[in-house]
Simulated assay, not measured.
Amino acid sequence: MLDRLRIVLIGTSHPGNIGAVARAMHNMGLSDLALVAPRCEVIHQESISRASGADHLLHNARIHADLEDAVADCTFTVGASARSRTLPWPMVSPRELAERLPSECQPSGSRVALVFGREDSGLTNAELQRCNAHVHIPTNADFSSLNLAAAVQVVAYECRLAWLATQTQAPELSSDEHDDTLATHADLERYFEHLERTLVAIEFHDPAKPRQLMARLRRLYLRARPEQIELNILRGILTATEKQAARTKTTPDNPSTHE
């Protein structure tokens, strides 16, 4: 299970924090580190020093231009958020997240991304809307700011506890469970693009007056966790809708000319 967890850091500005995150990951048995548009050197004297022997994670870390690329192959993406947003998203604690991991990591090809934002501003609303859920660490309300590595350590610790529990009590699964692969983040993003294009074509959605329509639909589908075959069905419906809309627009208004 731990091999299927990816820690994603966005816009990290201090090399020491990247090194400390690598140490926290290695302590808990995690090894998949992805960096999105880091604002500092990754392989730096301070990052290596703070890694304290986990610098192999720094050398093996993959660097991406954006979040989309970093989580494209993931089936479950969770963004760390210190506060609720205008449009609430499913919120879990680190322990609740960890309890879900055995089932999230069970299907073949599944991978979980745990996304952490910038030291000074966290994750943007747009980045959080790319996540299936938000994880919130219930800190002291009077002093809630956590160091980046400390936040990763808390979440990674809970993940390790959940993994240790599976070693002593493996879940009993029937032979026909988890036969269908969950849709990946990249699959869902292509679906959202297709959905918005179709909604514009049938004049249900006006991009000039979005009214959070696409954000709400994102929340709906990300919460539903569709399987690949289900997403294929949904895209087939969209394609048929587009074709029908195109035929309607090209058909004369005079009923007598209709076939």
Results as ranks from 00 to 15, higher is better:
residue 119 E to S: 03
residue 107 P to I: 12
residue 43 I to C: 06
residue 133 A to W: 14
residue 242 E to R: 14
residue 70 A to C: 09
residue 41 E to M: 10
residue 242 E to D: 15
residue 119 E to Y: 00
residue 98 A to G: 04
residue 97 L to V: 00
residue 215 A to H: 08
residue 126 A to Y: 13
residue 12 T to F: 03
residue 245 A to K: 06
residue 134 H to A: 15
residue 107 P to K: 03
residue 68 E to A: 15
residue 152 V to R: 05
residue 127 E to Y: 02
residue 254 N to H: 12
residue 6 R to H: 12
residue 258 H to E: 06
residue 34 A to Q: 12
residue 228 Q to L: 14
residue 37 A to W: 01
residue 165 A to D: 15
residue 27 N to Y: 11
residue 259 E to L: 09
residue 221 Y to C: 02
residue 78 V to I: 10
residue 250 T to D: 04
residue 97 L to N: 02
residue 229 I to Q: 13
residue 226 P to C: 08
residue 221 Y to W: 09
residue 18 I to A: 02
residue 186 A to Q: 12
residue 194 H to F: 05
residue 255 P to A: 08
residue 249 K to M: 10
residue 104 E to K: 15
residue 163 W to S: 12
residue 104 E to H: 07
residue 3 D to Y: 07
residue 194 H to P: 06
residue 183 A to N: 03
residue 71 V to H: 04
residue 135 V to Q: 01
residue 250 T to A: 12
residue 232 N to F: 09
residue 182 L to E: 11
residue 116 F to D: 01
residue 138 P to I: 00
residue 199 L to Q: 05
residue 170 A to C: 05
residue 19 G to T: 06
residue 11 G to P: 07
residue 28 M to A: 06
residue 240 A to S: 14
residue 167 Q to I: 08
residue 186 A to D: 15
residue 191 Y to A: 03
residue 215 A to G: 10
residue 33 L to V: 09
residue 95 R to T: 13
residue 154 V to N: 07
residue 219 R to D: 11
residue 89 W to G: 06
residue 239 T to A: 13
residue 158 E to V: 06
residue 203 E to Q: 13
residue 205 H to V: 03
residue 222 L to T: 05
residue 82 A to Y: 09
residue 253 D to S: 13
residue 223 R to G: 03
residue 89 W to D: 00
residue 85 R to Y: 00
residue 39 R to H: 09
residue 136 H to K: 11
residue 44 H to C: 08
residue 80 A to F: 10
residue 73 D to N: 14
residue 134 H to Y: 11
residue 81 S to P: 00
residue 223 R to N: 08
residue 69 D to S: 15
residue 70 A to Q: 05
residue 33 L to P: 12
residue 153 Q to C: 04
residue 134 H to Q: 10
residue 16 G to L: 02
residue 29 G to T: 02
residue 246 A to I: 06
residue 98 A to V: 01
residue 20 A to Y: 02
residue 153 Q to I: 11
residue 97 L to Y: 00
residue 236 G to T: 07
residue 248 T to E: 11
residue 93 S to N: 08
residue 2 L to N: 07
residue 73 D to I: 13
residue 189 E to I: 13
residue 212 Q to C: 10
residue 157 Y to D: 05
residue 70 A to L: 04
residue 216 R to L: 06
residue 211 R to V: 10
residue 185 H to W: 11
residue 164 L to Q: 15
residue 82 A to I: 09
residue 127 E to G: 03
residue 9 L to E: 02
